[in-house]
Amino acid sequence: MNQSVNETAGSGPSQRSAEVGVAAIMGLIAIIGIIGSLKVGIGWAAEGPRAGFFPFYVSLIVLISSVVNIVSALAKPADGAVFAEWSQLAKVCQVLIPTAIYALVVPYSGIYVASALLIALFMRWFGRYNWAIVAAVAIGLPIVTFITFEIWFLVPLPKGPLEAALGF
């Protein structure tokens, strides 16, 4: 890490390592894309390109660009710039982790229960609202959503055991 260079700004992963990381991920996706296109054929049939033609060259360009981006990130002198401070990243994770759990839980709990919990968590944890307000918003909003989507617009959203118990 480069904390010695810029102590006052706080420490964190360097911008350089983030640049290399992002470019590497893109390169990886490109390689997956190349494998996928090879499977369906990348040639040029009599009537024009086959299914894998465009994806193949597109992936190839992504791969080349990623290599260029990695090289140019490494070539830059280490100026000690940080991607974000650790404390900032912690805050991002405070949102990201509950959201990720939310997305994974939705198929099992249904979207309404999961949403109520997510809203309650945010309001209580970050907003420090008292429980009465938290409960009002966290329970009220999913109910309004339910009425709007399921009953009024007839758009079914994922439902779980609670909705089944209530007969929906």
Binding site: Y102, L118, L121, F122, M123, Y129, T145, F149, L157
Partner: peptide
């Protein structure tokens, strides 16, 4: 802290 989770929920929907 109120609007962010609501946006997240509507994004998910």
């Amino acid at each position: 802290s109120v609007i962010a989770p609501v946006i997240l929920v509507f994004c998910a929907i």
